[in-house]
């Protein structure tokens, strides 16, 4: 199962470090990462492979949303099938 993780919020040190460490702990592999900073605003989209994940999608959503909230970041984790279905025939 592929996941899409999107992060929006004020730029700060350690955003990607925090996310990637959570993913590593859960045995989730990062496949692609696109990140921009405009006027101090951080915007990231990450595609990850959760095939061998040690936790469920909803648990991961709770962990990342919780950590994001502490830093003032909006973190969303979505099942990638929604993008695959919408954009590929």
């Amino acid at each position: 199962m592929k996941l899409v993780i999107t992060v929006v919020g004020r730029d700060q040190v350690g955003i990607i470090a925090m996310i990637s460490s959570v993913l590593a702990e859960c045995n989730i592999n990062i496949c692609n990462l696109d990140q921009t900073i405009v006027d101090g605003f951080f915007n990231m989209i990450m595609i990850a492979n959760a095939e061998h994940s040690t936790i469920g999608l909803q648990q991961l959503q709770e962990i990342l949303q919780g950590k994001g909230k502490q830093r003032g970041l909006d973190i969303r984790v979505q099942h990638a099938d929604i993008f695959q279905s919408m954009h590929k025939v």
Binding site: V4, T6, D34, I45, A80, F83, M86, H87, K88
Partner: peptide
């Protein structure tokens, strides 16, 4: 595989 732009479009 979908692209980063596809993700942006869907989420928008």
């Amino acid at each position: 595989m979908f692209t980063i732009d596809d993700i942006r479009e869907t989420n928008r």
